[in-house]
């Protein structure tokens, strides 16, 4: 079964998207595994890194994926040429976009369709949103095509995030070592706990851990980090590696960046080294359960 890693926290600006990008590129470029990335965030930043996102003419500020490279207007009469992960909420077909990175395919966001999917009534939300991503990823086609799935989530605890968590086998919580961020961790742990209650013993949702992100050499960050590490039971879930605040992690996100990926940096580059260690740790945790149980 493909492993499904979700980067989630309902506080914004913690590094969900950056972490999704770097982890996905690590898996595709360094490990060479067939990887599907999914953008559940209506902001569509994750998608924008890999394909051209167009401004939605009917919805100010909203974004829609560019035409699919395989789309042929003369033949594909029943398709408008765009495909996004939001399609699963409308019973429509989804067609992943290839990216410039080998082994890496993308199911992009579609701002308005994702937002509207979230707006279903309370009665329908379980059937129409919460379980849809899980069902999609369980499809034989998806399972046979990909080894790994990385999902980026919106900064909320809403139906889209819940759908991602319901589909996940592993969850990573990136967090800054600051007051609101730690409150955010608490909120995500609640969601994780709730989901563990729904899972069968042979289909667990594993909390890979909290990834301390954008850490600076200041007292506040150090003391919050050591506070978390010392926390009873929590210590095991704080990753042993931290990601420091470095310009390079935001520079690679710029449109014409060079290098475009931190994995294009020399192997011994301090930033590459730092993030690669964290990625390796995540993947060790992800592969750890391999022999133990077969997922449903």
């Amino acid at each position: 079964m493909a492993k499904i890693v979700v980067n989630a926290t309902h506080k914004g600006g913690e590094g969900k998207t950056t972490n999704s990008i770097i982890l996905a590129e690590y898996i595709a470029l360094v490990l060479g595994l067939k990887t599907l990335i999914i953008d559940m965030d209506p902001q569509a930043n994750f998608s924008g890194r890999y394909i051209k996102m167009e401004y939605d003419p009917s919805y100010k500020g909203g974004k829609i994926p560019a035409l699919h490279p395989d789309y042929e207007p003369l033949i594909d009469k029943d398709w408008d040429g765009r495909s996004s992960i939001a399609n699963i909420f409308y019973g429509e077909e989804v067609i992943p976009y290839p990216t410039s990175i080998p082994n890496l395919d993308l199911l992009p966001a579609h701002s308005i369709k994702l937002q509207e999917a979230e707006a279903v009534t309370k009665n329908d939300v379980v059937e129409k949103v919460h379980l849809q991503l899980k069902r999609f990823l369980e499809l034989e086609d998806v399972q046979n095509t990909y080894d790994m799935v990385i999902i980026d989530t919106p900064p909320s605890k809403g139906p889209l995030t819940i759908a991602a968590i319901k589909a996940a086998s592993h969850i990573v919580i990136p967090a800054q070592m600051e007051q609101f961020s730690i409150e955010g961790i608490y909120g995500m742990l609640q969601l994780w706990k709730q989901e563990t209650y729904c899972r069968a013993a042979n289909n667990p949702i594993t909390l890979v851990g909290i990834l301390p992100n954008q850490v600076r050499d200041i007292k506040l960050h150090k003391q919050f980090l050591s506070g978390l590490r010392k926390g009873k039971g929590l210590g095991d879930y704080v990753m042993p590696h931290v990601i420091k605040k470095r310009a390079i992690y935001t520079e690679i996100l710029v449109e014409d960046a060079n290098p475009k990926s931190i994995f294009e940096l020399p192997v011994n580059h301090v930033a590459r080294n730092e993030y690669e260690t964290a990625c390796r740790y995540i993947m060790e945790k992800v592969n750890h359960g391999e022999k133990k149980g077969v997922r449903n």
């Binding site: 608490y186 742990l189 563990t196 013993a201 042979n202 909390l207 919050f224 506070g227 926390g231 039971g233």
Partner: peptide
């Protein structure tokens, strides 16, 4: 001195404990 408040760290501990205690059993 910066410390995570007791209420927050207790809440986090209890959440993790509860998740461990019932994982795979409750399935509601």
């Amino acid at each position: 001195v910066f410390a995570i408040s007791n209420a927050l760290s207790n809440g986090i501990e209890e959440t993790i404990q509860a998740a461990h205690d019932y994982s795979g059993e409750l399935r509601v």
